[in-house]
Design a binder for these strands. Structure first.
Lengths: 201, 201, 201, 201
DNA sequence: TATGAATGAGCATTCATTCAT
DNA sequence: CATGAATGAATGCTCATTCAT
């Protein structure tokens, strides 16, 4: 009983801290944010942070970990493949692109920035998000190939091209590209067509 | 005359410093690198750096600026459109993908990382690289459309999808993806086919 | 009755804590040891320590206090003066020198270190150990003088020289001197002769 | 030329910092002293300390190193052995005992305290002071033995007993013993007699 | 009494930048 | 222009102690 409650409290506090950290990181960036900032935002003492997290860097890992949980669920959802390849692809594209809510916008920048440079975070991203996503996608696309709905393309490269495209578009969006900002909603359908039909006349 | 020589000397010294900075940034990352590291690598005094650059951040901008010059020349080269769309696209993809020499590899990480987070650098990237590249690309692709070689697709979105794909693949490569590492050479041709023909049977 | 049991329990718990503290102090030193270390070693909660001791420093005082009790008993033992001065001196030297068991070795270092620097501990040492020891020794040696077994030397200085010699040898031993380490057992007899006969031919 | 001046300046600044550190350490102890205290006392910025010393601990080592230089010179002086053993011994004792000027008094406490607990400092003390002193002393005393002025005692133990006695007396003095404080001046002569003649009637 | 989460003052150290020489 | 010593603000993290449960 008591242990249960303790664990609950522990999780709550952890989330409280991660929420606060996510807010300040999003606002000021990772390096410019001080642990003092985070504590103040969370309404706790600085020392308390260290009762729940190893270091400031661990906070970013923690935030990322929570996010990757959501991502994992999204990927699972894809397994329920609909009959129509075009419909499937539209959903396939819609999910990550729309996950970029304005809330996550600035945070995303900070995390991408650190992923580039922080070995641990990079490994986490690779193994918890990129690899599983690619792996599941390959399985699904293989089914389409087997059903002769799509050509027997090089799956591994195709998956990487597609996921790279998504990642790249998000980065360009984050970069402030106006075209993408105004037409973001069109993207899923547009990309589905592009990938399926190509641009050749 | 003298002024000329002065200017020459100035440029040489600036480049000497930027080269040194690029090396250490690539090795240690931007934040972990100290101005002392850079001065030592360049074989000059710390103070001297500040005779040529405003700040440590200005060094990164300087490095990036030099790189974007190269990129600009690459893009110019594309204007000499060959008769064959497939050949063109292969060249189009080859350039940025192959620019990722092992030298630039780590530096790329550092720069992407800071672009995400540094407003000034981001603006520089957007206006000196992304925007011109997109703009020129649009012009070129418009010609292909006019020649009815490719479909009358939404050019702006297509350009962003393609450039995003390139950027995203580089990021995935940088991330340490093994498939991309071993098959990087195949990518230009593969992507040309993918974009032209689509994957639908 | 109940009070008696309470007191017993109290003492037991105090000793449990002091034992734990002594172990970790000996292992890590006073300053590097955290109250968390002590609590863990004692198998209790950090807060519990403060139900029995004022502060971390009080723990060292407590440890020292227990040790001085032993020392006091040793000194008392000396009062039973044997007939032979040489025998007496050998015993006199043997006691403190042999008290330096390997168990106490590291702890001794820590305590000497703090005695030097901690006013309260210093007072405790001076009044509970040094002063009584000197005082009793003076009384005993006075008897030897009265019996004309030893010269009518300046007793106060002699006592301080002798006790200082013991203390200094222990410090040198603690310092890692090899000669002392290998010949420690010979010391009591050797010192007795040295002090009694001098070195002059 | 310039290098010479630079070196001079460097040494001066180092000494300025060590002097300041010695004063504050003596006053507040090692651990309670902050680098800010030292900088303030030295009239420089905190960062400047780190241009000359690795760490706060290095300051203590530096102080100790300077002191050991003096000690070394004292020992060298002893080599000029006078004809009379008693005179020699009086000088032998006088030097370390009188080196304990009131200036060094509190600093001595701090250093002894840290020597007990700091491996590096302990090694420094052992190899730079204790060992050389013992070694030279043994040589000198051997001469006295050869001249049959003193008995063929166990030299190694004798030297350690004597040096220990000095160290122990200083510690007892530092401890605040009143007898030693008032009669400190008498000690050299007293100890010479004690060691030479013994106390036996 | 026992607990252990919360506290927050405290501190060594770093490093971009300045400026007298 | 070049130098590099001096600067001092800035910060992540620790840990003895408290106190509500």
């Amino acid at each position: 009983m008591k242990e249960e409650i303790q664990k609950q409290l522990n999780t709550t506090r952890r989330n409280q801290i991660l929420d606060a950290a996510a807010r300040v990181f999003a606002q000021k960036g990772f390096h410019p944010t001080t642990t003092r900032d985070i504590a103040k935002e969370a309404g706790i003492a600085e020392g308390t942070i260290y009762n729940y997290f190893e270091s400031k860097a661990a906070l970013l890992l923690g935030i990322f970990d929570r996010m990757s949980e959501t991502a994992r669920q999204d990927v699972d959802f894809l397994k329920i493949t609909p009959g129509d390849i075009r419909t499937f692809l539209r959903v396939y594209f819609r999910q990550p692109l729309m996950a970029l809510k304005s809330d996550n916008f600035e945070l995303f920048r900070v995390i991408v920035s650190e992923i580039m440079v922080n070995q641990e975070l990079r490994a986490l991203y690779y193994h918890k998000i990129l690899e599983p996503t690619l792996s599941i996608s390959e399985t699904i696309f293989q089914q389409w190939i087997d059903q002769q709905v799509i050509k027997p393309v090089n799956l591994k490269l195709t998956m990487r091209a597609i996921s790279g495209m998504i990642m790249g578009l998000i980065v360009e969006y984050v970069m402030g590209d106006e075209t993408l900002e105004t037409r973001w909603e069109e993207l899923p359908d547009f990309l589905a067509d592009l990938i399926l039909d190509g641009i050749k006349e």
